[in-house]
């Protein structure tokens, strides 16, 4: 575990806390894509199937359970909680996310490290995570104005991806046999998707103005 990986995990955790805080404090999920949240729940459930077969560390196991539980809690809030549910605007959240699920699974069937049940679901989760933010980014772009907490949620998610790239560079330089193409290439694609958002996030930060995305 290096400092970049730890910082990446912490910003990932922070992003989820910011999102939960937003939903809890405002009893609203306006600006939040339910589809992205459902994709993340699928990502964690598919990836952490190894919770029952492989033990890495107490830290890993704990974080896996936190990620699964928190992603399910967020989906539950948006789908079931009476007040939060009312604030969900399904007309803005129209991304056909099932296409992402289908494409990721198909890709995992062809591109995986081993042709086993766990490995295919692991690869599937990596591909799906890479594109899972798309419904959220499209929703933000369509609604134009982004509230502070939602903006910070996406910012921390992007920061987490950026830090994971630094982690891989560090591991590549320090571990003699560090090669993991699937995770690294997908991770770079995933981070690139945030580039546009980051550009406007920094402009609004520099000008001390509200974050606005161009239509």
């Amino acid at each position: 575990m290096n400092i970049f990986r730890l910082a990446g995990d912490m910003t990932h955790l922070l992003s989820i806390l910011v999102l939960l805080l937003k939903i809890y404090a405002t009893k609203s999920c306006s600006g939040v894509s339910r589809k992205t949240q459902e994709l993340y729940a699928i990502v964690f459930l598919a990836r952490y199937l190894d919770l029952f077969t492989d033990f890495i560390s107490v830290y890993n196991t704990f974080m896996k359970i936190v990620f699964i539980a928190s992603s399910l809690a967020i989906v539950w809030c948006i789908r079931v909680h009476p007040m939060v549910k009312r604030s969900y605007d399904k007309d803005l959240d129209t991304f056909r996310h099932y296409l992402l699920v289908a494409a990721s699974f198909l890709l995992a069937l062809f591109l995986h490290e081993k042709f086993t049940f766990l490995e295919i679901f692991w690869a599937f989760s990596i591909y799906l995570e890479a594109v899972a933010i798309l419904p959220q980014l499209v929703l933000l772009q369509r609604s134009g104005n982004v509230d502070n907490l939602t903006g910070q949620y996406v910012f921390f998610l992007g920061a987490y991806r950026g830090l994971y790239i630094l982690n891989w560079i560090y591991r590549y330089l320090t571990e003699p046999r560090f090669t993991r193409w699937i995770a690294c290439v997908s991770g770079v694609v995933q981070t690139a998707l945030y580039a546009d958002f980051f550009y406007y996030y920094f402009i609004s930060w520099k000008n001390n103005s509200k974050l606005k995305l161009p239509a």
Partner: peptide
Amino acid sequence: VVKGKIHDEL
């Protein structure tokens, strides 16, 4: 890399 423990990241 220990076999079966390649996925040591989250």
